[in-house]
Amino acid sequence: MSTGTVFDIQRFCVDDGPGIRTTVFLKGCPLHCVWCHNAEGLSGKVQLYYSAEHCIGCQICQAVCPVQAHRFTDSGHTVDFSRCITCGACVDACPNESLRLAGKLMTAEEVLSEVVKDQPFFESSGGGMTLSGGEPLMQGEFAISLAKLAKERGLHVCIETSGFCNHETMKSIAQYVDLFLFDYKHSSPEAHKRYTGVENKIILENLEFLETLEKPVILRCPIIPDCNDTKEHYGAIAALANRMKNIIEIHIEPYHPFGVSKYTALGLTAMYNSQEMMPKDASEQAAETVRALSGKNVIIS
C-alpha cells in the first residue's frame, strides 16, 4: 500500500485548475526557491508547527515534552526546534491549535477517501483533485498512486509541479493527469540555479516531453520583484508558450508575503522576506507584456 507525507488537504480550491477542487499538498521539495510561500512543503519530514498568536500560555506543552523543546520565560513561550523529535506529545496536550504537526503519513486510500467527499461538487463544476506541494513528484510513487486511484474513481486530476523530477516519474504520472500546472520560474539557467537551487535543464526536458504527449499545460510563472520581473523573462515566457501548442494558458503569480510567518512557525528563516505585495500595476504590466508577445490567454492569479 502506497503511503506518503501530506501536509494539507484543502477543499473548495477554485484557483488550482478548473472547477471546484480538493488540493492535496505533499511534503518535501528538491527546490528551495528563495520566495517560496509554502514553507511547510520544503522539508519532506514531519515538523512541529507553532502558531504563537494562538498560545494561551498554559505551559502544558512544557510539562509533557520529553526533550525540553518548550520553554516559558518572561518573554513568553519559545520553542527550540532543534531539540524537537516530533513525538506529538505537546500537540495532543495543547488545548487549541497553537501546536500541530505539519505533515502526516497517509495511505493513498486515506487521502482519496477525503478527496471524494466533494465528488458531487467536482462533477457539477468540472473540478477534481489537484496534487501540489512541496513538489508532489518528489514523492513520485505516492503521487502516481494518488493520481491513478483518482482516475479510477473518475476524477479530473491536475498536478502542480516544478517539473523537477526524473523522466520516468513524469512519464508514469502523465498517463493519469488531465492538466499540468507547470511552474516556469526563471528563463536563465544560472539565475534559476541561484534562486531555486537547481538548474532548469531537467524541467525544460520534462516540459518538452509533455508537449510530445500533447498534455495540456498551464504555465505558472511566479513574478518576484528583483528576481525575475524583467522584460527578458517575460519575453522568454511568451516565446516558450508560442513554441508549445500544449500550453493553453499562462498564469502570472505576483509575489505575496502571506507565507513569511510560516517560516517562523517552523523555526526557519525566510530567505526572501519582503512584506510588500507586488504592486498591482506591476503585475498587470507583466501580464500585458506576456499577453502581447504570446497571444495566449494570460491571467493574474
Partner: peptide, 22 residues
C-alpha cells in the same frame, strides 16, 4: 475574493446544483 467572473458563476452554479442534488 470569490471574484466576479464567469468562473465565479460556474462555481455558484455548482454549489447550488450539488446542494440540491444532495
Amino acid at each position: 475574493n470569490f471574484g466576479n467572473t464567469e468562473k465565479s458563476l460556474m462555481i455558484l452554479d455548482s454549489l447550488v446544483k450539488s446542494a440540491f442534488a444532495q
